[in-house]
């Protein structure tokens, strides 16, 4: 392949992206084990949409198509978005979200390296505020449901919204643990009672906590490979654990435990894969700490007091806005210059 000089400049990007995707594989395997093959369909749909959209926009912008397409950044965006969506989301939801992420959030702002907001999270936020009913409807973990859908059944559901005869929507879907926690707290039930619900696992949602563990594993691989630095994941997880821990100690009936926050929702995915996006996140070491701590604080606030069950996407986008400010005020002092 002769794409020089572009190819050489993009090699580093594509190696990084490849490693990120590799690190996501354990999470995806756990996901399939916990919720079935539907997620694979979502991943393929999102990837295909992302590549087509990326190619089309590059063509329109008169940029070289192949090198940018092969750098893998569009694929990573697509994967992160697909993993954040409910696994049996209808096909058009995945397509609309991915198109928004690639065309509007990434390319209208100037393409790779220029986008101020995390494209996958923009796609997620757009879908969440536009289709809240679908976005908060998750399938029950396979372990718990009698209505086990085969791969073909899940395929049918994704493309036609048709369930096999004899299986009702109620049998296969459930609220997410975060959502359930919120609605039950509103009815003034204490957390001990709420956590008795059958879809609560060891730490957080049954099945979902295993997936979170697998993301953690992938994240450690990224740290080991020095694809990401320790600052963002550590600051994010520690801050989230601290703030939820303090409130949990004060009133355990009203505030969920730190473990629930760490292994519930999109926490782990955010810590290692979303907040660590090098383009839309802070770049200085101290800046990264502030940036990640801010996301953790906002995530906890939105989960506890906000109108939507999980707050990761909004937290990341809000902190993206502050990145220029954080970076400008945390520049490391150049040796020999006083501040």
């Amino acid at each position: 392949m002769k794409f020089s000089p572009f190819f050489t400049t993009n090699t580093s990007v594509s190696v990084v992206m490849l490693k990120v995707m590799l690190a996501l594989v354990p999470g995806i395997i756990a996901y399939v084990w916990a919720f079935g093959y539907g997620i694979v369909v979502s991943l393929i749909l999102a990837s295909a949409t992302a590549l087509l959209a990326e190619a089309a926009v590059l063509q329109l912008r008169k940029r070289p198509v192949m090198p940018f397409l092969l750098d893998g950044s569009a694929l990573v965006t697509a994967w992160l978005l697909a993993l954040a969506l409910p696994p049996l989301a209808p096909w058009w939801l995945v397509v609309v979200g991915t198109l928004f992420a690639i065309i509007i959030a990434k390319h209208l702002y100037g393409g790779l390296g220029q986008n101020p907001f995390n494209p996958a999270m923009i796609g997620y936020a757009v879908l969440l505020i536009s289709f809240p009913a679908i976005m908060t409807q998750w399938p029950a973990p396979l372990e718990l449901t009698s209505a086990k859908l085969s791969f073909v059944d899940q395929w049918h559901y994704i493309f036609n919204r048709a369930l096999p005869t004899g299986i009702g929507l109620d049998a296969m879907s459930s609220a997410t643990p975060l959502d359930y926690l919120k609605t039950q707290l509103m009815l003034h039930h204490p957390i001990e009672t709420i956590a008795q619900a059958k879809f609560f696992g060891t730490f957080a949602g049954k099945g979902a906590d295993i997936v979170a563990g697998a993301y953690l594993l992938g994240g450690l691989y990224l740290l080991h490979q020095r694809v990401i630095s320790w600052h963002i994941p550590t600051a994010f997880l520690v801050t989230l654990a601290l703030i939820s821990g303090v409130f949990h100690l004060v009133n355990p009936a009203q505030f969920a435990s730190p473990l629930f926050h760490l292994f519930g929702g999109a926490t782990m995915l955010c810590a290692f894969f979303i907040a660590t996006d090098p383009v839309s996140g802070a770049t200085t070491p101290n800046g990264k700490l502030i940036f990640a701590a801010g996301i953790a604080l906002l995530t906890w606030l939105i989960r506890t007091y906000g109108g939507y069950p999980d707050g990761v996407a909004f937290a990341v986008l809000l902190m993206n806005i502050f990145v220029p400010l954080i970076d400008a005020n945390t520049q490391p002092r150049v040796f020999g210059h006083s501040k």
């Binding site: 809240p132 009913a133 679908i134 908060t136 409807q137 929507l169 109620d170 879907s173 609220a175 609605t183 509103m186």
Partner: peptide, 13 residues
């Protein structure tokens, strides 16, 4: 909740 009124999944409150 075992009553006779419809609701939409995801919004019961």
């Amino acid at each position: 909740d075992g009553g006779s009124f419809d609701y939409m999944a995801g919004a019961t409150i």
